[in-house]
């Protein structure tokens, strides 16, 4: 049994798996673990993914974190105007870290509390409404808790999901695909009946009951529920090359091991 990996490395591999088999789409990982996950996916199982340098250019070799000895080789251009065009075409998969997520896969990046006077205001909706109705979306949650996975609807719906009350006849929801939610406890998806939330895999040493207790809505436990796959030596080497300064050590407080001490 492998023990020599961190929880951050485990979730980076799980993030990478979300980008598996997506085809030629722009893979946008926002934040350390999603970005490393997208890069890992491209350098291992999904070389067809498209990716940017984090500014405005396409690269075929995912750029490592931090200062670089030389500018990367660009293979194309991806200004924000073109990002919007790609979004509306459906050829993208973005993984973000929202403030709140609900049982319908709806996401909130705007703030906590009432919209008119939120208790905590954050950035605004950014691209969530357009991303979520047009292309693949996944989420990363470093602190799995009932504060993030809320009991009712998220306070401000930016990213749309599978809540039937939000949709009228004639609105086209065919492209909505909330693919994966990767947390510090597990990997979830919305592949239950009528897009109900499921636990897809548990991180080593985590129980289903612990995940359910930290989630504000009921979760489905599949019969074949297994463990989130540990990183392979090859995956760990790719992650280390993409993150030479070990930014991944800051993904979780105290950088815990991937396998909990018994």
């Amino acid at each position: 049994m492998r023990n020599d990996f961190t929880l951050a490395e485990l979730v980076i591999v799980a993030c990478a798996d979300a980008f598996r088999g997506n085809g030629e789409v722009l893979a946008s990982g926002i934040g350390t673990a999603p970005r490393l996950g997208a890069g890992l996916a491209k350098l291992t199982h999904s070389p067809e993914l498209m990716m940017t340098d984090g500014e405005a250019f396409l690269v075929e070799n995912p750029v490592p974190f931090g200062t670089r000895p030389a500018a990367p080789a660009f293979s194309g251009y991806m200004s924000y105007a073109r990002v919007f065009d790609i979004v509306w075409s459906g050829r993208r998969h973005v993984m973000i870290g929202p403030l709140q997520i609900d049982r319908w896969g709806q996401a909130n990046l705007s703030g906590v509390g009432a919209y008119d006077k939120p208790k905590i205001a954050m950035l605004g909706m950014r691209g969530l409404p357009g991303n979520s109705i047009n292309h693949l979306n996944s989420m990363f949650v470093p602190n799995h808790s009932t504060r993030v996975f809320v009991e009712g609807e998220v306070d401000i719906v930016g990213g749309v999901g599978y809540n039937p009350a939000r949709w009228q006849p004639g609105m086209n929801r065919d492209s909505i695909d909330i693919r994966r939610v990767v947390t510090d406890l597990c990997v979830m998806d919305f592949e239950g009946p009528d897009h109900a939330a499921r636990v897809r895999s548990l991180h080593p040493g985590v129980s289903f009951e612990e995940v359910q207790a930290a989630t504000g809505f009921p979760l489905i436990r599949p019969d074949d529920l297994g463990e989130t796959p540990a990183p392979t030596a090859e995956e760990l080497a790719v992650i280390a090359a993409l993150d030479p300064r070990n930014a991944r050590a800051s993904v979780f407080k105290d950088n815990p091991p991937g396998r909990r001490a018994a």
């Binding site: 919209y115 909706m125 409404p129 109705i133 047009n134 749309v160």
Partner: peptide
Amino acid sequence: PTRTGLGSDVMTVNPEFRT
């Protein structure tokens, strides 16, 4: 016209928006 915004609170926090 666009699909973007449908189903989200864009529609409620901009009450003058119409489909």
